[in-house]
Design a protein around this nucleic acid. Structure first.
Lengths: 132, 132
DNA sequence: CCTTGACCTGGAGCGCACTCCAGGTGGGAC
DNA sequence: GTCCCACCTGGAGTGCGCTCCAGGTCAAGG
């Protein structure tokens, strides 16, 4: 049960100080403990939660949805099924996103190959030109 | 070699009319043909190019980079190697993006499983409660 | 000829997710 | 005591990628 200063958390998580404050302000991060002087001190739990947020954000979940998830988490243990279904539907959307990315990537690779074939064709033509 | 009205193109590509005009304005789409009356008529080539743009956009390429690619394409055949290297580096970034997405997805699935295990544990507890 | 709906232009506005700023406070080192 | 730096607050600003709007034009159908 360690405690962490804002800048330590920024270093560990990659979130900027401003983003940490922003998330707290909008309610993604509820009630971070403070020192007597008013400075934030983050707990291990806070870091864990930030990890989840990072995960959701990096997989493209909009902040509004993260907020709903945060509210479910704060609301108590009896809505665990709701949390699960939210995560499961997000998981499915991530799956879709990956599939779409793969499909588009194939098209890009096709384009690359096509360019390369025109390149070697023109090389060939150039070689022939040298010969004649 | 067909021609297409703006709304046909919007239907076919999924880009909105505004987005088509916007892309033209910023130079992603150069000099679309016009009717005598001033209306745009898109060619099959234009549609092909829009397909490439869609591909690049959907894989997360920022507009500034698409613009550089567009300029390379307009500039002539002798920079095909530059286009290829641009696409190849983008392809690599897509690969990275997918890998990151997969990794985060695994973490989400882990969380789901963890929730489910707490659920079945509490079910178990409830069942015991009924028995006692 | 008149209506209607798709289209035109330049420019303003929007939503998202931060990011920056000014002006002020806390607290450890010297 | 004084420096200095990390931190605080509320609020304004930013960058991206569109999206909307007002006011006008074109052309096919009735």
């Amino acid at each position: 049960m360690s405690q962490y200063s804002p800048s330590e958390v920024a270093d560990k998580t990659g979130f900027s100080l401003d983003t940490l404050r922003y998330y707290e302000r909008i309610g993604l991060l509820g009630d971070i403990a403070r020192t007597v002087g008013g400075r934030r001190t983050y707990s291990d739990d806070d870091l864990g939660w930030l990890g989840i947020l990072q995960c959701l954000r990096d997989t493209g979940m909009p902040i509004a949805d993260m907020l709903r998830f945060a509210e479910l988490c704060r609301a108590g243990e009896d809505n665990v099924p709701a949390r699960v279904s939210l995560l499961e539907s997000h998981d499915a959307s991530v799956e879709e996103k990956i599939a779409h990315l793969r499909a588009q990537q194939q098209r890009i690779r096709g384009k690359i190959d096509w360019y390369k074939s025109t390149l070697s064709a023109s090389e060939h033509a150039a070689a022939e030109e040298v010969l004649t």
